[in-house]
Design a protein around this nucleic acid. Sequence first.
DNA 1: CGTCGTATTGAATGGGTTCAAGTAGCGTGG
DNA 2: CCACGCTACTTGAACCCATTCAATACGACG
Lengths: 245, 245
Amino acid sequence: MSASGSDLTPLVRKLESIASLSVEERQAVESMPATVRLLDARQDIVRDKDQPAHCCLVLSGWTCRYKLLNQGKRQIFSFHVPGDLPDLQSLHLRVMDHSLATVTACRLAFIPHESMRELTIQFPGLGAALWRDTLVDAAIFREWMIGIGRKTAFGRIAHQFCEMYLKLEAVGLAAAHRCELPITQVDIGDALGLSNVHVNRVLMDMRSQGLITLRGRALVIEDWRALCAAGEFDPAYLHLEPGAS
Amino acid sequence: MSASGSDLTPLVRKLESIASLSVEERQAVESMPATVRLLDARQDIVRDKDQPAHCCLVLSGWTCRYKLLNQGKRQIFSFHVPGDLPDLQSLHLRVMDHSLATVTACRLAFIPHESMRELTIQFPGLGAALWRDTLVDAAIFREWMIGIGRKTAFGRIAHQFCEMYLKLEAVGLAAAHRCELPITQVDIGDALGLSNVHVNRVLMDMRSQGLITLRGRALVIEDWRALCAAGEFDPAYLHLEPGAS
DNA sequence: CGTCGTATTGAATGGGTTCAAGTAGCGTGG
DNA sequence: CCACGCTACTTGAACCCATTCAATACGACG
């Protein structure tokens, strides 16, 4: 189905969190052609080796990027929440080198590459904002590398929870150190290079230490300071604008 | 010291390997102001938390990006060779979230952010090429995440050697499966999340299997196919243009 | 020719995996 | 309304890849 103007509001809000938009820029963003689709949980959106002609914008739900290895192993590279453009990179890299899938049921908007490219050329400020977004993406990859390479399982998971909370808070989907966490322990393991068994043991440990409460999909960070300390979490790498609450 | 026109030739060559340049674009790149500096091995170029006003272009030598953790641990994110812009991201992320240092003695050119930004606005094609470069950067991070998270030490090192060889070959610094490898076993360990002791054992193993020869700084890949297989190496993620030999 | 960084080798230890089994929660349909 | 079946979660025990600690060899360079 085709998008009405208000469908791209999450994108406008996202861009405004990166740069201040002029009236023309805002209108240009909102008037981009977009197709909205609803997907169930655990569906591929774009696959490894595809050559997509659209960018995907998450309107609601969670998505993740991943790659399958031999022997059924899977590495998750990132989780994405409403307002994110999880395959923005496909704008300038023709062939996908990984897959993008839904985690929960999602409402997604698809914007033609052509429109995005015209936008970035006509409004260099918007181009810079989008470029910046992909650079923060890369910064998060680097931080994950540190976790996977150099931290204990406990530290990795603690760090992950801190990061997820701040990302959700930044788009108004979390507050008071509470948020929804619609991913399984297998997902966490696949993201952090751990077995689901060990993820479970660490979560048990965190609970028994009173750091978190996790029942179903409800995550409560009971001791933010201690969790940050355990994960050596410093949010500088997220490059969040100061004052965004 | 100030740069003469020919100093930026490596950048032109790099950009031409990404996109085809018009005469005007080529001239615009070559006429950017640049300061050339010589640095010894193991010197920081830009540090974590700095707010640089220039981009660094590697003219000769190797550099690496890294971050220090507590307890003296270090994670290396990437190695960079002539033609690379290792801190291009600082163009749109004001604060450094990691450091950049020389590995060997280097000849480096520093280009003001201001000039780079003007270039990308005046020539959107060049802007896209540079953006693309940072996207490939991110793709390499993702591939390293897979290695660190999901591969054995043997596979990780094999993959790393394959990647390094192709990167060097792409800029004419390697051929016939031979290249210079001016990094220590500690560096390899810091990049792949391994101890130097274990790196050494794996290298011994690789030699005894006849996969590589490594004497001093001279790496010879004796069995390219087998090394690729061991590292599950598929160069798609490097997004090299076909036909760039 | 000594010295410092790098490489090499051995032995003990440990964090995390793997295999295996059992439990809890939840949507579906009889 | 409860049985069923699926998925996610939980727990135990054995194993292993890689780390750590420690000692030794090499090799470039002043």
